[in-house]
Design a binder for these strands. Structure first.
Length: 648
RNA sequence: GCCGGCGUGGCGAAAUCGGUAAACGCGGAGACCUCGUAAUUCUCUGAGCGAAAGCUCUUGUGGGUUCGACUCCCACCGCCGGCACCA
């Protein structure tokens, strides 16, 4: 070990320091304010504790609370403080894992009885004591026997310990009375943890394995600044305020009723408008891009899914078989379809195909039913009866890239240009358990990647995340408050064409097997509508709004004129209602605002005399435009046909 | 499916060491009002029968304990928060 080491700082300067110096020493040498703000250090790219000795020449960057990596350190330390508190209050608790996660942290405990909300309050109070005690986080490297001894009462830690390789450093961290097997890094001391809150407790399988025991997980959040914590809690409230299940009831869009069954949606008239407009929009777009529309039955003979390979592999997710009753053999069983692919495949195979016919693009916005586990269902976002904007493209290998290219274009038109969603793309490549040879996978993955690059899209690689039958592109959309939802999926498939012996006659007059691309742009209409409700907080753009205009006569004297205007707009294709109830004007204006109707068309004495209308836009307050009825109608038409996002 | 919590009018809910279910509010009906831009005021309003007095029923479903159950016990259904799953 050298006596002196050279430490390179981010500005390029190099300091000579005695070996064993720490990042904290360096920070102090640079300035007291930096030393105070320092949380951890990035050492040759890894994040280290401030007080961990530096023994070799290295690059060091002091991380302050401005750095996102520092937030991870804070939250991981918060998890340790949580465990410290739980151990104080529940000495019999065994500890599992306690990592930092997005926006917070959790820690898993094996306890004789689950935590109650009162427990959480007590634990949080105890955490504040631990933080105030300002215990130093100290790191220690130990050998395996030592570690076994320290964690002899914690079977979960011992299990983890045994998995560590012989060449791995075993480190333990302690803060006050609590010791944990942990790679770190951590805050200098628990006192740096100031702004945190425990959120809830829930069950979680040990190691994420549903065959293992269930532990009790406590979730919390932690931030460097009070304002950040408050902002985060506000964001949670905002998410709750936008919850599509609540808005769905309030705006009378849909319901899910026990007698119908969980995960099965009843679309009320106003919600049905959303589905209708979405469908019309996507189908118009598809027709322009050379798709053909097909319709297939909801129920088919079970044999079809045996042939496609879904049975018995995915039987768990299908509803059970049913017989046709009298007149047919009891051996003939039927199933409700969980996907459309086998049926579309049969349409492709129903006639001979030439290489000149390809690509064949079959689209069906239709219903499928999946027997999802009861615990997974969630409003419109996870359902059992789903409407997919499904399509299957059958093409030659040399056409894959162009097809994918167009699908990515369509995705952008729909998600971004039309709804304003930002989205994130993952390319998922061959998994360990796969069908087909590597050469074919290579061709397919290359084609997907080239299409993505040609569109100049940035994407993440999900290595090994593909389906067993082919690679895929998954697109997650980000809503107005930053949450991500799986939407678009584009999947290549070599298996289904093989199973159904699909063919086309090539230029060489010989049979060839086409490639099949499965894709859904919206994903499912249910989920997409759920996302839209939350994205717009129920205030839909005019073209989607279930009720686009509410005509409000000021007094009964204008009621007839108001109804005439309503009729006129309705004939022009506008979804309009007339509120001529004998409520006060204030009351009716308020109600239209609460229902998030884009336009209120107020008709008073002046307007009737002049053939005008006082247009009040949603959210615009008292600001109003008095325009001719023709002008208003033209403005509406413009907003509707352009599918404008804004009301004005 | 698993762990935990929860289930009361059309809706938000109130009432639990077992003792008059539905306070309060929203919504709805009626009356008044005819109004110029986000809640005018009053009456009624759990359901059924009745002219009324009143009677009967009702706390997810089915059982049980008890003089008495929204409250305690068992089973089931559903919802919520997670976990696992998600072709």
């Amino acid at each position: 070990m050298p006596d002196t080491i050279h430490v390179t700082l981010p500005d390029g300067s190099v300091r000579s320091e005695p070996a064993g110096t720490t990042a904290r020493d360096i920070a102090e040498a640079i300035g007291p304010r930096l030393a105070q703000a320092a949380v951890a250090a990035r050492v040759n790219g890894d994040v280290w504790d401030l007080h961990r000795p530096l023994t070799d020449d290295t690059a060091v960057e002091i991380l302050t609370d401005k750095d996102p990596a520092a937030l991870t350190v804070l939250r991981h330390s918060a998890a340790h403080v949580l465990a410290t508190a739980v151990r104080e209050l529940f000495p019999e608790a065994h500890i599992g894992f306690g990592p930092a996660i997005e926006d917070g942290f959790y820690y898993d405990f094996e306890v004789p009885r689950p935590f109650t909300p009162e427990d959480l309050e007590a634990i949080e109070a105890k955490m504040r004591e631990v933080a105030q005690a300002d215990h130093a986080f100290s790191r220690e490297e130990v050998d395996r026997d030592n570690a076994r001894d320290r964690f002899r009462d914690d079977p979960l830690k011992l299990e983890r310990l045994e998995e560590l390789g012989d060449d791995e450093t075993i480190s333990v961290y302690s803060d006050g009375p609590f010791v944990d097997l942990c790679r770190g890094p951590h805050l200098p001391s628990t006192g740096r943890l100031k702004h945190f809150k425990l959120l809830h407790a829930a069950g979680a399988y040990w190691r994420g394995d549903s065959d293992r025991q269930m532990l009790q997980r406590i979730y919390g959040t932690a931030w460097f600044k009070k304002a950040d914590l408050e902002e985060y809690l506000r964001r949670l409230e905002e998410a709750e305020r936008r919850d599509h299940r609540m808005l769905g009831k309030q705006l009378d869009l849909f319901s899910i009723q026990e007698v119908v069954g969980p995960g099965l949606i009843l679309w009320h008239p106003k919600g049905a408008v959303l589905q209708f407009e979405l469908r019309r929009f996507i189908e118009d777009e598809l027709r322009r891009r050379g798709y053909d529309f097909v319709y297939t039955p909801h129920v088919t003979r079970e044999d079809l899914f045996v042939r496609s390979g879904h049975l018995p592999l995915y039987e768990d997710q299908q509803f059970p078989a049913m017989g046709a009753g009298t007149g047919e053999s009891e051996h003939v069983q039927y199933r409700v379809k969980p996907m459309n692919c086998p049926l579309h495949t049969l349409i492709y195979a129903a006639r001979q195909r030439s290489y000149r016919d390809l690509p064949v693009r079959l689209s069906e916005v239709g219903n499928v039913y999946r027997n999802e586990l009861s615990g997974t269902l969630h409003g419109l976002l996870r359902v059992r009866g789903l409407t997919m904007d499904d399509a299957h493209v059958f093409c030659r290998e040399d056409q894959i890239e162009d097809e994918i290219f167009d699908m990515l274009d369509l995705t952008d038109v729909v998600l971004h240009k039309t709804f304003g969603f930002e989205y994130r793309i993952d390319l998922a490549t061959r998994p360990d358990k796969k069908m087909g040879d590597d050469a074919a996978w290579e061709v397919a993955e290359q084609a997907l990647q080239r299409a993505l690059e040609r569109r100049k899209l940035t994407f993440g690689m999900d290595v090994g995340g593909g389906a067993f039958y082919g690679p895929k592109i998954d697109i997650k959309l980000r809503d107005a408050i930053g949450r991500e939802w799986q939407g678009t999926t584009i999947q290549l498939d070599y298996q289904m064409p093989a199973r159904f012996e699909l063919e086309y006659t090539g230029a060489d007059n010989r049979p060839h097997q086409p490639v099949m691309i499965h894709r859904a742009i919206l994903g499912t209409v249910e989920r997409f509508v759920g996302c839209l409700i939350e994205h717009f907080a129920g205030a839909f753009p005019v073209w989607l709004a279930p009720e686009q205009v509410r005509v409000i006569p000021i007094t009964d004297d204008q009621a007839a004129a108001a109804r005439d205007m309503g009729d006129r707009l309705r004939r022009a294709g506008v979804r309009v209602s007339v509120d001529d109830r004998s409520e006060t004007l204030n009351y009716r204006i308020r109600e239209a605002e609460v229902m998030k109707v884009p336009f209120m068309a107020v008709v008073g004495k002046r307007e009737v005399e002049q053939g005008t209308v006082a247009v009040r836009a949603r959210g615009a307050g008292k600001k109003q435009d008095v325009v001719s009825v023709e002008g208003f109608e033209a403005r509406l038409q413009g907003l509707i046909t352009s599918r404008a996002l804004e009301v004005s």
